[in-house]
Nucleic acid binder design. Sequence first.
DNA 1: ATCCAGGACCACT
DNA 2: AGTGGTCATGGA
Length: 289
Amino acid sequence: MLLARHQTEFAAPDYDLAATLDSGQAFRWIRVGESWESVISGRWVTLRQEGETLHAGSNRSPGDWEWLRAYLRCNEDLGPIVDSFPADEAFVRALDACRGLRLLRQEPWECLASFICSSSKQIVQIRQIVSAMCARYGSVVGPADAVIHHSFPAPEVLAATSESELRECKMGYRAPYVLGSARMVAAGEIKLSGLGGLSCEEARKELMRLPGVGRKVADCVLLFAFGFQEAFPIDVWIDRGLRELYFPRRKPTRQRLANFTKSYFGPYAGYAQQYLFHYVRAIRTRENQ
DNA sequence: ATCCAGGACCACT
DNA sequence: AGTGGTCATGGA
């Protein structure tokens, strides 16, 4: 907070900042003491929670801070969302385990490029890849002595790199995917800014035209960047969790699982997904200790 | 050392 | 439409 020349605070009832920023939906938040640092849409920011108040700081003129409120979605009422969920025993446990965990509204390109890098990677490694990309291709936007101080490189910047350069960021076989997607976005073949006006299905179909973007990555971007709350990304954790909790004997295909979650969890299925994700991973962590 | 990670893609059935 | 192999890297 000492580095932040501009500061503000706002109410955030029923909000668990640490759980939210560390939940695997965003990969650029670093804990610094009691605060969290990152860069949102090119603006360096530091956050700290005290009870139901969020203290925010930035190093340049933050305007009305609306960009930060929109990102954190702290005025979203969790009540109707939680009430809409099924009350089966397993899911109630999942809910109880992570009250206050929120969905963010991230910048689409950063979210998209990050999740292209996420395939078959642990979250800690995704963070390393994204961090390397930003350090190499981003520009300095925060205090030089801050832990995080690079912007996320624009599609035009990444489009001008090469596959071998990108591989130096340790993204392996995902490098041509990042490069190809950056080029399509930079060339305007895909207009990310227009996806929010489409239906979830239409927007998903558009995203899946990009190399390295399948159903799961597309759903992550729809949920974490575009606010399609019915999107339900099914990764290896969710897949295992759903099978153990709801299909202990059968072995439904991914498509059948997707159909089930849509009808079972309803219009806010994406929130349910995030709670399940947190829950099954918390269980696994405990079992390994 | 071996397994596996917030998968996508291609070649086969 | 559904399965199996392959891809690169490094935590656990």
